[in-house]
């Protein structure tokens, strides 16, 4: 799975059984799953928040670039999503 190249037209969403949530007590976004928790750094959280099961990866990138007034985020985003996919945090459905 690790070596799969990511299809940027695929629709991306958080995996079944995982939940993205802001934790006030820890002042951070976390990803919750059966009996565990991953603390997310800010960029990971911003990416995952936009993986809503409606957008494809291209539009996740576009939206991030717009919201943060930046360009050239594609490599970082795709890099992170590959790790997330490998860890089973997300699902990518081919369009």
């Amino acid at each position: 799975m690790a070596s799969e190249t990511i299809d940027k037209t695929g629709i991306v969403k958080i995996s079944n059984g995982y939940r993205l949530q802001f934790e006030e007590a820890q002042d951070t976004w976390v990803l919750l799953y059966p009996e565990g928790m991953i603390k997310l750094n800010q960029s990971a959280a911003e990416i995952l928040r936009r993986c809503d099961g409606e957008r494809n990866i291209e539009s996740v990138i576009e939206l991030l670039e717009k919201d943060f007034e930046q360009t050239g985020l594609e490599n970082d985003v795709v890099g992170f999503l590959s790790v997330a996919l490998e860890q089973n945090w997300i699902l990518i459905a081919s369009a």
């Binding site: 820890q26 059966p34 565990g36 928790m37």
Partner: peptide, 22 residues
Amino acid sequence: NPVNQISTAESDTNDRPGPPLW
């Protein structure tokens, strides 16, 4: 044992402890 899998963050054991995450 329901806690084999805890993969939560550690808190510094000398300071005020963090919350009971679990």
